[in-house]
């Protein structure tokens, strides 16, 4: 008999309060939100001129995000992009960081399956065969596809909204349904039209890649921690917990940064680009004439 068994790996979150739809991931999401609000409340309660402690950390974070957004999108657009990008980063960071807290994923209610239906459960600690017969009360929010998918949906939808509002309906719609190219160029325009259709598909693919990237990384992280807690308890996690902290920050950054990039790309008009090139060309010609 083993001292521990490999923990049961399930993707689907479990409903932990019977009769409601509240799952362990949703509960954990709420807990991370409470943590976030507490941190922000304490951090913004005192608005000292010389920041210290939590206030300093939060201001550093916001300034970092501000600089990031402005370096990609410029000052004016950066102001519009910042709230969502910052929310993604901060919220995902808080959700991910809960992953490495002891007790998350490991404390829960005993739920015996058919094979162990008659086993006697004793004590708060589970040993041996029964050690994986547990439904955890808490699972990090980002190991739930519902959350990652909803965030991906928000990201894509907001990108579209910004595209429509900043480019105008006609410009944005012609990105996906490019009838104008067919009218102008005939046969060759068909290629442009198909490119537009592919854009629609890539928007859907973006939805999947956004949600599964975050989910895959954090879920794999929590599985990794669980598996190494089983293979080499305590020792292995000394290495893997810092690694997971690193992954948590990186994934939060990637999600926020990609949203920012897609927003920037999605609100940049193609026709504007061409005009810019023409201007550059004219300037070049002008200087050539002047040098003669």
């Amino acid at each position: 008999m083993n001292l521990w068994k490999l923990p049961a790996i399930t993707i689907a979150p479990e409903v932990i309060i019977p009769g409601t739809w509240i799952t362990n991931t949703l509960l954990c999401t709420w807990i991370s939100i409470i943590c976030l609000l507490v941190v922000f409340f304490i951090g913004t309660r005192r608005r000292d001129l010389v920041p210290a402690g939590l206030q300093n950390a939060l201001e550093w974070l916001v300034e970092f995000l501000q600089n990031l957004v402005e370096s990609v999108a410029g000052k004016e657009r950066g102001k519009r992009f910042l709230p969502l990008v910052a929310t993604f980063f901060i919220f995902i960071l808080f959700c991910n960081l809960l992953d490495v807290i002891p007790g998350v994923d490991t404390i829960g209610i005993v739920h015996l399956d058919e094979a162990h239906a008659n086993a006697v459960v004793n004590g708060p600690l589970l040993w041996g065969d029964l050690s994986n017969q547990i439904i955890p009360w808490l699972r990090p929010g980002t190991t739930d596809l519902n959350l990652t998918l909803s965030m991906a949906l928000v990201s894509v939808v907001v990108t579209q909204i910004l595209g429509f509002s900043m480019l105008g309906f006609k410009d944005q719609a012609s990105k996906y349904l490019n009838f104008k190219a067919i009218k102008d160029k005939g046969g060759m325009g068909l290629v442009d039209f198909l490119v537009g259709v592919l854009e629609i598909i890539s928007e859907l693919g973006r939805l999947i890649s956004f949600s599964f990237r975050l989910f895959g990384n954090i879920f794999a992280g929590s599985v990794l921690l669980a598996v190494f807690a089983y293979l080499l308890p305590v020792v292995a996690n000394v290495i893997f917990v810092p690694f997971e902290l690193f992954v948590a920050v990186i994934q939060a950054f990637v999600f926020a940064f990609l949203t920012l990039l897609f927003m920037q790309v999605g609100t940049t008009s193609h026709s504007h680009h061409d005009e810019g090139e023409h201007e550059v060309h004219h300037e070049y010609e002008g200087s050539a004439v002047a040098s003669h």
Binding site: S71, V72, I208, S209, R213, V254, F257, L261, V265
Partner: peptide, 24 residues
């Protein structure tokens, strides 16, 4: 460097998306 990094990350994302499909 900033421009290259931005574009690198964008391209890496497209490559990574394929691995994500495999994961799915």
């Amino acid at each position: 460097a900033p421009v290259i990094q931005t574009n690198m990350i964008l391209a890496i994302v497209f490559a990574e998306a394929i691995a994500i499909y495999a994961l799915v």
